[in-house]
Design a binder for these strands. Structure first.
Lengths: 140, 140
DNA sequence: TATGAAAACGATAATCATTTTCATATTAAG
DNA sequence: CTTAATATGAAAATGATTATCGTTTTCATA
């Protein structure tokens, strides 16, 4: 059975604070260092893996490495939880959309393809970035 | 303006032959070697980048590297083309589904998020693999 | 308090896909 | 044929992630 360590708590706390603001393992390390509780990268990866297995964080892998995002407050088996990732700002948004669920059901029935909502990341542009057309921010 | 080289033609031909059977850069290199026309990995990556920019191939990046798939015959601005990737066999399927388009419109109108179909990869399990429950194949 | 085994830690090395570098080869005009 | 632009390939560099391994922490028990 797993031990409770201060690193584990620190990583979890840091992810909670970020909320829907997804981050990379390196960014997490930087956050922790600045918070006065430095944690080794290897340990961070280990914790993230555990948290993902436990269903407490979402992991989504893109070109420049994986992004992790806290989702502990959301019901674990929650099928209506979908992920939208903004290509501009890198933020990951959770959406609770009946139509999305309906579509997935449709794909399963008519196209014989069973979508895994937890592993699916819809890519596009969020409203904030769409409104800023041209204004450049920290991409990811 | 780009020169026409035999490597360029070989890479394109190889991708065409694979059709909807997506592959990695390394697999492409292997194909070309076996076809008696070995091409350096660096060149393959360079060609893939050009082809992607030209809209001739789709690039989708997952955990274990990117997958490339020929899509030259499909209209470039074709918004109704969606990608489904099987988590088991790694195959990428194209789906032309009106409901998918309707959903994306819904997300834009109601959730203020504009989906980029070309960059979105729906992940799940295809019918073939679902029917083989347990039988293991070459995962990716 | 001690002890000790299980589990976790961190520094570092290893992997692996992708990119860069750079010297050489190929292409397409003139 | 010459030449300048572009492409190639081998090898080194990069960067994220994982594995290794000796050390440290946790926690139940003495």
């Amino acid at each position: 059975m797993p031990y409770s360590t201060k690193q584990h708590q620190a990583v979890l706390r840091c992810l909670e604070q970020r909320g829907e603001n997804a981050c990379t393992a390196a960014e997490l390390a930087e956050d922790l260092r600045r918070a006065g509780c430095p944690v080794g990268l290897a340990t961070i990866y280990r914790q993230l893996e555990k948290l993902e297995t436990a269903g407490v964080v979402h992991k989504v892998s893109g070109e420049e490495g994986a992004l992790y995002q806290y989702c502990g407050h959301q019901a674990q088996g929650h099928r209506d939880c979908f992920l939208l990732k903004c290509e501009r700002c890198g933020r990951i948004r959770h959406v609770d959309c009946t139509q999305l669920q309906a579509l997935y059901d449709h794909l399963e029935r008519e196209h014989h393809f069973r979508i895994n909502p937890r592993g699916t990341l819809l890519s596009g542009v969020c409203d904030v970035c769409a409104g800023e057309e041209g204004t450049h921010h920290g991409d990811r």
